[in-house]
């Protein structure tokens, strides 16, 4: 037996492949001439399923676990996911608070929660970044970024 994560990704991708194939079957396989909109997705789905099976099998027959990869601690993956949740939260806030404030809040979150730096460092970085982005992208380059009720 090889690694568990290989098995996991094999199963996930196999399921995804099956989903793609089934969806593709609902689309016409041939159209007026030549292949229809379902042709390509069907073969992609079949390819995904077969290769996932191959991945699972290869993993099954791999005698020793791959030792070259160190085990990932749950903690570190947890940290990455917390950071990602922060990003998602900030994206959700974009349309209500605008880009500047959302970025500042995300920065505060990352520095305080993940890095555990002092508050004043976090605050100054957050304000600095938000201002910097505003000056460079909005004032100098004239991009329109999502803005809050106060116009930035």
């Amino acid at each position: 037996m090889g690694e568990k994560k290989e098995l996991l990704s094999g199963i996930c991708l196999g399921a995804f492949g099956a989903y793609v194939s089934i969806e593709a079957l609902n689309l016409p396989y041939v159209s007026e001439f030549g292949p229809g909109p379902g042709f390509f997705p069907l073969w992609i789905g079949i390819g995904l399923t077969l290769l996932s099976l191959l991945l699972i099998l290869a993993n099954f027959f791999a005698l020793t676990p791959d030792e070259s990869r160190e085990r990932q601690s749950r903690l570190s993956i947890g940290r990455a996911l917390v950071g990602w949740s922060g990003l998602i939260l900030a994206i959700g806030l974009l349309q209500w608070l605008g880009f500047g404030l959302s970025l500042a809040l995300l920065t505060l979150f990352l520095i305080l929660v993940l890095e555990r730096r002092p508050l004043w460092t976090a605050l100054s970085v957050a304000i600095g970044l938000a201002l910097g982005f505003h000056v460079i992208f909005v004032l100098a380059l004239g991009l329109s970024l999502p803005s809050g009720p106060w116009g930035f």
Binding site: L87, A90, I91, L94, Q95, F99, L103, L106, T107, L110, I111, E115, R117, T121, V125, A126, G128, L129, F133, F137, L143, S144, L145, P146
Partner: peptide
């Protein structure tokens, strides 16, 4: 700790400016 929020910010700006779509 400044660089990473900055990279995320640039990523958001870059993606948003493709077609101004949330």
């Amino acid at each position: 700790f400044i660089l990473y929020p900055g990279i995320l910010g640039i990523s958001v700006v870059g993606v948003y400016s493709v077609s101004n779509s949330l």
